[in-house]
Design a protein around this nucleic acid. Structure first.
Length: 486
RNA sequence: GCUCCGGUGGUGUAGCCCGGCCAAUCAUUCCGGCCUUUCGAGCCGGCGACCCGGGUUCAAAUCCCGGCCGGAGCACCA
């Protein structure tokens, strides 16, 4: 136990202290757009933000930045999926905020900015404005009076304009050295039904505006965001300055790429699911948290995996092998051991006349009790072993030593004649105890027989000896398991 | 084109801010050995890195300049 704590302690050190963080006063948020299910990438946001909040006894907020019902249309089911996965990962949000339900609030801040002369309604076309931006020139709408702007803004809200005809821009500096900062858009018109608030609004805030206001309202002290959003701070600071607010401490991190999953976009996956290529969002081949959970990964493994990356700005390109290693450390201690024989071949052992109960531990080192296998004449072994040992001696683990003949027969030997040494000990399943077992792997299905004792382990992550860790999913017509990793 | 960021072994990471204790940390992968209850597990051991070039300094992975390579933003997307 003491060692456990010490290990955990060391792990914590992976997260460097946050600048200007005071115990009990830190407020962090994870702000996804629920336009798809949480993925491996989401996990990093949840874990690192949640971990920091915990580290400083602070607050962890889950905020849905769902303010684009068209281009990044939220998926109604996904809201709850995020909440579930936060909890599964061990970071239950202290507060949950839905941006789309607080749009009126954003309007009021927008009005104030307009009244302050810090925001204006712009009716330039995209290309038109782009030109002004590139040239560092102000567009004709920029210097109109506050009164005119108030009127135009109300016009936007009332539907005087259609999509694309008018936007509300924040005044920054048209000569700012970074073109990305110049008079950015705070609100635009989108005539689309929103999954959560329906057709209540036609004017929606952009991420930069919504996020800027929310971070202040919620009292966020520290923001962790991808470096692709590094311009946000520069843009949002203008608003903070106009209102006299203090900007949170920002830490950027690089993007993360997992070798095994190329660039699978949410929309692409969605299409493939509809086409039937994937069985659903929890298809084991997908990088969704649902899939990982189904495969039997432990939340702590995800946690250690992501904490090991720290919060640097360099991009991370990593293999799932690293996650497997983290998971294995946990699974190895918890998983019961069973025999599963793939590509089964039946052998008959000459010399076995009666059935003997073979007692095997459910775990080699942890106290988990035992399982009983019938030591009988007919057993299955995997074809791989059959080929490897045909004509040679092998030991059926816990049962007996045999010489395997090409014919499919086997001859019982005295134990002394076969050294019980790693390398010649194989696993087996008694024919009378064999249950069909299907394993769903990322590469396809693997079929064979498992010992019937495994029927008791539905829902658990087990280790099929000499095969892999798997999560046993169901037991209808035989067993169905999902492959976790070697 | 403009702006910003990064570059430590196969992979990830510590160290860089406050130069020496760094012939560089930890993990993983890979390789080898051990294990008469498994294994791709465990245990033990091993290989393996500061992008390049200048400069500052008694001393540079650490500071400065230049180059090269990589990433990001310049959306009425998040």
């Amino acid at each position: 136990m003491y060692q456990e704590d010490e290990k955990r302690e060391r792990k914590e050190l992976h997260l460097p202290p946050l600048p200007k963080a005071e115990k009990g006063k830190v407020v962090m948020r994870f702000a996804p757009n629920p336009n798809g299910p949480p993925t491996l990438g989401s996990a990093r946001g949840i874990i690192v933000n949640g971990e920091y909040a915990r580290m400083y006894s602070g607050k962890f907020i889950l905020r849905f930045d769902d303010t684009d019902p068209r281009t990044k249309r939220p998926m109604i089911e996904a809201y709850d999926w995020y909440i579930e996965d936060c909890e599964w990962l061990g970071y239950k949000p202290d507060e949950i905020v839905y941006a789309s339900k607080r749009i009126d609030t954003y309007y009021s801040y927008a009005s104030r900015l307009i009244e302050m002369g810090k925001a204006y309604v712009c009716k330039c076309g995209r290309e038109e404005f782009k030109k002004f931006k590139e040239d560092g020139k102000e567009c004709p709408h920029r210097e109109r009076s506050v009164e005119e702007n108030i009127d135009e803004w109300n016009g936007m809200l009332e539907g005087r304009y259609s999509e694309g005809e008018a936007v509300l821009r924040i005044k920054t500096d048209m000569k700012h050295k970074d073109p990305a900062v110049r008079d950015w858009v705070a609100f635009r018109i989108i005539m689309a039904e929103h999954p959560l608030v329906g057709g209540k609004y036609i004017v929606y805030p952009t991420l930069d505006f919504e996020s800027a206001i929310e971070d202040h309202i919620l009292g966020i002290t520290h923001i962790l965001r991808g470096k692709d959003l590094s311009d946000s701070e520069k843009r949002q600071r203008y608003i903070y300055e106009y209102f006299g607010w203090e900007y949170p401490v920002v830490k950027l991190w690089g993007k993360i790429k997992v070798h095994e999953f190329g660039k699978l976009s949410t929309s692409f996956i969605k299409k493939e699911i509809e086409r039937g290529k994937y069985s659903g969002w929890d298809d084991p081949r997908l990088p969704t948290l649902k899939a990982l959970r189904r495969r039997g990964f432990f939340a702590d493994a995800l946690r250690n995996f992501f904490l090991s990356f720290g919060v640097g700005e360099n991009d991370v390109s990593v293999s799932m092998k690293n996650l497997y290693a983290e998971n294995r450390k946990i699974a190895d201690k918890k998983a019961k051991r069973y025999f599963f024989v793939w590509n089964p071949v039946m052998i008959e052992i000459e010399g076995i006349e009666s059935i003997r109960n073979i007692h095997l531990p459910l775990h080699p080192s942890e106290e988990m009790g035992e399982r009983i296998l019938k030591g009988e004449k007919s057993v299955y072994i995997t074809e791989d072993d059959f080929r490897r040992f045909a004509g040679k001696k092998a030991r059926l683990k816990g049962f007996c030593s045999v010489r395997i003949l090409e014919s499919g027969k086997a001859i019982l030997l005295d134990d002394e004649k076969v050294l019980k040494r790693a390398g010649n000990i194989i696993h087996w399943v008694p024919v009378s105890q064999a249950v069909k077992c299907k394993i769903i792997t990322p590469e396809g299905e693997v079929n064979g027989y498992a010992e019937d004792n495994a029927l008791d382990a539905v829902g658990e992550v087990v280790q099929f000896e000499r095969y892999a860790f798997c999560r046993i999913e169901s037991r209808n017509e035989g067993l169905v398991a999902v492959y976790t990793h070697p």
